[in-house]
């Protein structure tokens, strides 16, 4: 018995060691980072007629921030140097914009260099009389003319795009779905599992966006990474004949972790800052976008597996270890990285 335990212990140790070596490799060589996909954000609050407080946030999840900046109409000046502040994953600039008696009305706001990026920028202007306008700027449409009376706000399509972007660029969510795809047998169980994941993340996304539940985003992101490690471990153990919970009840695991992922999605929506009256529309459209992205990804993966099967390749047995260890290493790396983020702020 004791011998067996020792054997198990050394095996566990060996596995941990190999996992860590892959981890280090992933971390140092590839410089792979999960980037949470966020749009840029420009907020202008009119404090006195023609004078605006500005907040300009550039996402900088990977390396230096992109060289984009807002260009205001010619009648606007920046009287004082802007204050720059670095936050996790973004750079924030604050300052004052003075546009004289004419104000911003009729003027054009453009985000310079946006066309050479793949970022969206959300612009929100609140006027002294309490009215506000919101506009999403894109690489193909980097400017807009401010019409105070026009009820221009971000349309549903804008939030759908944001949702698609969030799931396709949030590689962590995709890896979780990939893990489920590799585990779940048969189309019926897969449908059930993906539906459970969807119901769960939609629920928490709604709860968090309406402010019923509030959780700090950074620990949530860390636990999301951990949920992928969990799936990877289940996959790896299955190769050794251990039937984990995910193999027995995949929909249950998908539901439980789906709740977490929903908080992650909500974090994105919250950081953009949606005007209160826009919340139901934004929530609905963003979620549609997330589902569309998810369906596209699932279709692509299933089509890949289905196509590959036509060749009836006899894969050597070690190749079956590659997906769980690759997914697990990457997710562990993100987990450590996000933990570091929790404790450094």
């Amino acid at each position: 018995m004791r011998h067996l335990q020792r054997h198990q212990f050394t095996r566990a140790l060996r596995n941990t060691a190999s996992l860590f070596s892959i981890l280090l490799l992933a971390g140092t060589v590839c410089d792979l980072r999960a980037h949470t996909s966020l749009p840029g954000y420009l907020e202008l609050n009119e404090t006195s007629p023609g004078s605006f407080e500005m907040l300009w946030r550039i996402p900088a999840a990977e390396g230096p921030p992109p060289a984009i900046y807002p260009e205001f109409p010619a009648n606007c000046v920046v009287p004082k140097q802007l204050v720059t502040q670095e936050a996790p994953g973004s750079v924030v600039e604050r300052g004052l914009i003075q546009c004289g008696p004419k104000g911003l009305a009729g003027g054009s706001i453009e985000i310079e260099n946006l066309q050479v990026t793949i970022l969206d920028v959300l612009v929100r202007i609140t006027f002294a009389d309490g009215t506000s306008i919101t506009q999403m700027l894109r690489p193909l449409a980097p400017s807009f003319v401010v019409h105070k009376d026009a009820k221009s706000h971000v349309d549903a399509m804008g939030y759908v795009r944001l949702g698609i972007g969030h799931i396709l660029f949030g590689i962590d969510h995709l890896l979780f779905v990939l893990g489920l795809l590799l585990i779940v047998p048969g189309p019926r169980m897969l449908l059930k599992t993906i539906t459970a994941f969807t119901i769960a993340h939609t629920t928490t996304l709604a709860l968090a966006t309406f402010g019923v539940v509030h959780l700090a985003p950074t620990p949530i992101e860390a636990v999301i990474a951990l949920s992928i490690v969990f799936l990877a471990a289940e996959l790896a153990q299955h190769r050794r004949g251990v039937q984990g919970l995910t193999y027995r009840k995949p929909w249950l695991v998908a539901f439980a972790f789906g709740l977490l992922h929903g908080f992650g999605f909500a974090g994105t929506l919250a950081r953009i800052g949606i005007p209160a009256h826009d919340i139901p529309l934004a929530l609905f459209s963003f979620n549609i976008g997330v589902e569309l992205g998810q369906i596209a990804f699932v279709t692509a993966v299933l089509a890949f597996i289905y196509s590959l099967r036509t060749l009836e390749i006899q894969w050597p047995s070690w190749t079956y270890r590659v997906p769980p260890y690759a997914i697990g290493s990457l997710a562990s790396f993100w987990f450590l990285q996000r933990c570091a983020l929790i404790f450094s702020f």
Binding site: V116, I118, R138, L140, I164, A296
Partner: peptide, 22 residues
Amino acid sequence: LTLLAPAAASAHPMPGVGDFYA
């Protein structure tokens, strides 16, 4: 492609986001 992913506006310099997708 831009309609599908909010990505492919220009295939060239894409600072900040997803060189992998680029």
